[in-house]
Amino acid sequence: MLPDHVTEQGNVVQSLWNGAWVAALATGAVVIVLILWASFFHRKRRAKADLPPQVRYNLPIEMLYTLIPLVMVSVFFFFTARDSERLTRVDGDAPVKVKVEAYQWSWRFTTTYNGKTLPTVAGTPVHDYHQGPQLVLPVNQKVEFTLTTDDVIHSFWVPEFLFKRDVIPGIPESNPGRKFQIQTLNKPGVYAGRCAELCGVDHSRMLFNVKLVSQQEFDQYIATQQAGSAQ
């Protein structure tokens, strides 16, 4: 069961997930029906001890069980490739940009909004994601993330994003694999985040949270942060 998503990209993941399950269940049902049909209607009967006519091959059937899987795999590949492109596309025009720095064993978030950089939010290992560093984002906005680390492999994961991306050291900043973007939905709230890659002794305490707020509340947050940095 997927959690309720808070991003537009979550709709893509949800659709692909549901479609994959429908296709898998339909394929499974067809296979089970064919197995039962073959078991009941082609079993050897005592009244007919002779073997049925034997053939070396059946061209129509062989073409059928070759072409059908080929068509199925092609359809799966098309939808997966299409949705992967949508999920990994970065337009570069997001008004909110977040630099995510993963380290043993917490996170640093540096937010830039309309070209203005806010003070970095950092944390220490915690036992409750509410106590970890908080990333504040506005609803109904495009957000671009840049992931970086200097120690070991981490993984940035917010379950409600329905998206996870590894944070790998040594990858140049120009590499597109370091970036991804989301379009937040109008679902204010506080959402848990964590590292999803075993990264050391305090991996389980590498927690944070994302707080989605209204645009008015986000503007107030921006003003407060800028006023604090000016002092």
Rank of each mutant, 00 (worst) to 15 (best):
R82L: 15
A94E: 05
T112I: 05
A102M: 00
K97F: 01
L118P: 05
T110F: 01
N114V: 06
F78N: 14
S106Q: 00
T112A: 03
F78E: 04
S84Q: 15
E101Y: 14
R86W: 00
V98C: 07
A81W: 15
A102Q: 10
V98T: 09
V100L: 02
K99M: 09
N114C: 06
E85W: 02
K99N: 12
G115W: 08
V98D: 06
F109D: 10
N114M: 06
P119Q: 04
D83G: 06
A81K: 13
P95M: 03
E101D: 12
G92H: 07
N114D: 12
G115P: 11
W105Q: 11
V75K: 13
Y103P: 08
R86F: 01
A102G: 08
T110H: 06
F76H: 15
Y113P: 03
W107N: 14
Y103R: 04
L118A: 04
E101F: 07
W105T: 08
G92R: 03
D91V: 10
F109V: 01
G92S: 11
P95N: 01
F109W: 01
S74G: 07
Y113N: 06
F77K: 05
V90N: 00
P95A: 02
F77W: 10
K116F: 00
T112C: 09
S106G: 12
T120C: 01
S84V: 09
R82W: 13
K97W: 07
T80S: 09
K99A: 05
K99R: 10
Y113V: 15
T80P: 00
F76E: 10
P95G: 07
K116L: 13
K99P: 01
A94K: 12
T80M: 04
F78R: 06
T111L: 05
L118F: 13
E85A: 15
D83K: 04
V100P: 08
A81P: 07
T117E: 06
F79N: 14
L87P: 00
Y113T: 00
E85L: 09
T120S: 13
R89K: 03
S84F: 08
S84T: 14
F109Y: 15
R86G: 03
F109I: 03
K97Y: 07
R108I: 15
L87E: 01
T80F: 14
S74C: 13
T111C: 11
R86S: 05
R82Y: 11
S74A: 14
K97V: 10
R82I: 01
S106H: 03
T88R: 14
R82M: 07
T110M: 09
K116H: 13
Q104S: 06
D93V: 11
A102L: 05
T120M: 05
Y113S: 12
V96H: 06
Y103W: 10
L87D: 01
G115M: 03
R108G: 12
D93F: 09
T112E: 11
